[in-house]
Simulated scan of single mutants.
Amino acid sequence: MTGVELEVRPRKGRTKGYLNRIRAEGFVPGVVYGKQLDGVGVEFEGRALEAILKRHGRNTILNMRIQSNGKKPRKYTVLIKDVQYHLMKNDIQHVDFQQISLKDEISTVVNLHLVGEAPGVAVGGNLSQPLRQLEISCLATAIPDSIEVDVSGLDIGHSIHVSDLRVPEGVKVLNEPQALVVSVTAPRRAEAGEAAETPEAAPADEEKQVNE
């Protein structure tokens, strides 16, 4: 995984009015955290990051250049830590970046991607995937784009757990080994026949009058 360039500039304001103004201009506010950085505010073109996410994914290494008027740009190696989107427009509203070292292992999450067709589904079974992301630890250069989960051997009643997954060399899985990833269960069947009718109760015998 190679680094992708991202040009940013120092953020000049923090007020709601300022943030709304730069968003209207196509810029996105962000914060960079790390050993050498104590929550540095930045801003950058939203389209630039959207293109990176679309082409390379969220776990790509970014070579961030913080431009400053009249000064030499500061360079940092970072990963995207969190992305906040607009609830209605789905535009990027804010991004947290994490400064990293290419020599140290980091913890992150990657998507689990199902491949193949489960035989159990072909005969009416229901496929369920309760775990869609895997927690891993590895060097930043070893982060996979995703982890493939082959379901081509899943019949009804079969399942795949974290311990069954194949991950690239150098990647450590942090999830519990017994955690369920995907399974195929039997379909729900309609109850056969109609419910048995409850027999009507016989009318109670009339009380007999006893003659004295």
Rank of each mutant, 00 (worst) to 15 (best):
E207S: 02
L87I: 14
I147S: 12
I156L: 11
G13E: 09
I106P: 07
V95K: 04
N211Y: 09
Q67A: 08
P119C: 08
V95T: 04
Q178P: 04
E25R: 09
E169V: 11
D155M: 14
A24R: 10
Q67R: 11
G193W: 05
K72S: 03
E148M: 09
I66A: 07
I92G: 06
G17T: 07
M64H: 03
F27H: 08
A122I: 08
V123H: 08
I106W: 05
Q93N: 05
S101F: 05
A51F: 00
V78M: 11
N63I: 12
V32M: 08
A142W: 01
V162L: 12
A202F: 10
H86K: 03
S152K: 06
G193M: 01
G17S: 13
S163R: 14
R11E: 10
A122R: 14
I52P: 02
H56Q: 07
P10N: 15
L127Q: 04
G193L: 03
T108R: 01
Y85H: 13
R74E: 15
D96I: 00
T77L: 14
V121Q: 09
H94E: 05
P168V: 15
E50N: 12
D150V: 09
P73Y: 11
Q36N: 15
R132Q: 13
I106H: 06
I106K: 07
P203W: 15
D164E: 06
V171K: 02
K54C: 01
D38A: 14
Q98R: 14
E135A: 15
V115K: 08
L79W: 02
D104A: 12
G17L: 01
N111T: 13
P130M: 01
V115G: 02
S159L: 03
R23F: 12
R166P: 02
V109N: 12
P29T: 07
I143P: 01
R9L: 01
I147H: 10
R47V: 07
L114C: 08
G34M: 08
E207I: 10
I136F: 11
V123E: 15
E200R: 13
S159H: 03
V123A: 08
H94I: 02
H56N: 13
P203K: 13
V182T: 09
E135K: 15
Q36F: 05
G3V: 00
R55E: 00
L37K: 09
L114W: 07
L127T: 03
